[in-house]
Design a protein around this nucleic acid. Structure first.
Lengths: 333, 333
DNA sequence: TCTCTTGATGTAACCGATTTCACTTGAATG
DNA sequence: CATTCAAGTGAAATCGGTTACATCAAGAGA
């Protein structure tokens, strides 16, 4: 016995006014006499009227929803961003359509299409790499696009990040100061701009500035996962590394556990620093030193930026960089 | 220079057919001659026409989106369910509107309202407890509601879970067989039905069946978080427990680390079993024994159930229970 | 008193699809 | 050859709002 939905028309009839007037009071338009406003409000309450957002969206061409493309909600790093996004979205009365892409180019494109079909007012994209096709889809989109925690090699898309190069630079310099000269750089695929153009660059720059020769054999490219990190032990040992900078916390936990499981003491014989400051860094033993990033804020600021774009407000700066820090825990000296 | 959107009307004009016909080919209606179908398809392709989902939703009263209420995406347990939900949703051509509630009753109600305003076709709810108000909102909703990984004391709402009582029962029995007779029960708020009516019951039943007296002082109620667990050490030690069953992995990691940090050997002096089999259980040292739950599947099956409900298909069983298991790792003997 | 504004309200077009119903046609049936 | 039927198609109503424009009454200014 689900009752028929109450429409704006029902309210108008019951209140003896036109639909336009009802619409006005619902939308807070000032041009309504207080008396009639009250009358309408009473009827709305009595009938338990709730505006149909779909109809509203069709008429106004605004859906008050934004699309969010995420590699995988299950990944704490991205989930933290997503949480920041949702909170700010809610604050501005938007809802979020969430789609998992697994970083797969084809699925990212599909998502873009369905999101646009659903007339989202804006899109926040998180991903490891932006293909040419995707970039052109962004450009064609009527809905503005903002990148969160994701870099764009072309540098033209609005985005919110930290300065990954500088962050890695600082952390590596720190490891160097601790006396290490064979420092492993452990990352996901180097074909990704964020790894190649920023993090690796920070690593190289730090070595150069310290006068340490760069060795290609100290680069370890692997799956961004616990097992991906765990599997590296043998190669790391063979190359006699005494420290590692790792670009993902799960991966870092894998690297560290594989070492300690083999009886190598951390940080005594092997120092390790990671990058994302997820809560995992406090749960491992030893706890992991890390670059600290305001994950929640990256998402939040990205969403805030998107609201401005959606309102055609002027933007001071297209690319915003949030401050990072270094947190020393037990895995470094 | 964002171009004006192409509408069904444009396609119809260009192809010299009516809107109805275009609609038919777009929706795969059989009653269209092959020749005209091809003609329309060509124009669609030429004009790059993409149906407006909002208009479609208004006309058909189907939005092909479902609402998902989640306490916090940042929580791996719920995020895993969400991933299962999204995958199956995508498979059935639905999108997901995700809202974080923090388990807050008021926000859950607000979410229900906005989701219904957006005309979602169905709703999946994850939460710790269902208030009377919320339950009545579920009942009033035109969109069917399915619970995922969440129990309903009234037992009337369709849901997908594992048998929490039985799972805890098995795990506790296991600890008893290992020689423990002072086993702590560590959970979140006991006012929650899932903790009180199912897990605690499993704990009690196991003790009873083993002839061990139940002691209220062995119940530990705390924040469902790492720090919540970590803070319990003193109380646990004071009560001379030799083992613990913990209802959340983060919490369990907290309990375990607080013990090992104090020099207590696990599992030598203290055994610990946890409940959710998130990847964290493999990242701690020692690794944690756990109840295994098909998290992804709970979400996936819930979504599948929801699709049936949305299609008014007959349901064999309102409440589905997926099989659980026990995984022995290093934290138990 | 008459014109001008301005505030409050209503009328109706419009947003972009789906869907019912009626109509046309050609083939099958008797 | 008349009748029936099914396939293919279009006209128009409809979904539930927003909004441009028209209208009207009342107070302000000359």
């Amino acid at each position: 016995m689900k009752k028929q939905n109450v429409t704006i028309y029902d309210v108008a009839r019951e209140a003896n006014v036109s639909m336009a007037t009802v619409s006005r009071v619902v939308n807070g338009n000032q041009n309504v006499k207080d008396a009639t406003k009250q009358k309408v409000l009473n009827i709305i309450d009595k009938l338990d009227y709730r505006p149909n957002a779909v109809a509203r969206g069709l008429a106004s061409k605004k859906s008050t929803t934004v699309g969010v493309i995420i590699p995988n909600v299950t990944n704490t790093y991205f989930a933290s961003l997503a949480r920041g996004i949702d909170d700010i979205a809610t604050m501005y009365k938007y809802n979020i359509i969430l789609t998992n892409s697994d970083g797969n180019n084809q699925r990212e494109l599909t998502s873009m299409n369905t999101l646009q079909a659903k007339q989202v007012d804006g899109i926040i994209f998180m991903g490891n790499e932006i293909s040419e096709e995707l970039r052109s889809e962004f450009k064609k989109s009527r809905a503005p696009v903002v990148l969160a925690g994701s870099v764009d090699a072309s540098g033209k898309i609005p985005s919110v990040n930290i300065d990954y190069r500088q962050a890695v630079y600082s952390e590596v310099t720190n490891l160097i100061n601790n006396g290490n000269d064979r420092i492993a750089f452990v990352s996901g695929p180097l074909e990704r701009s964020i790894n190649k153009d920023f993090r690796l660059k920070g690593y190289k720059d730090a070595l150069t500035d310290a006068g340490i020769p760069y060795e290609k054999s100290l680069l370890f490219e692997t799956d961004v996962s616990y097992s991906g990190g765990y599997a590296l032990r043998e190669r790391l040992q063979k190359n006699e590394v005494t420290a590692a900078i790792v670009t993902d916390d799960d991966m870092a936990a894998g690297v560290m556990n594989s070492m300690t499981d083999d009886g190598i003491s951390v940080p005594g014989e092997f120092e390790l620093a990671t990058s994302n400051d997820t809560k995992l860094t406090e749960m491992t033993r030893p706890t992991m030193s890390t670059i600290t990033q305001p994950l929640y804020d990256v998402g939040a600021v990205a969403m805030r930026l998107l609201t401005k774009l959606m309102n055609n407000e002027d933007i001071e700066e297209n690319k915003v960089f949030l401050p990072f820090g270094l947190k020393k825990r037990e895995s470094t000296k």
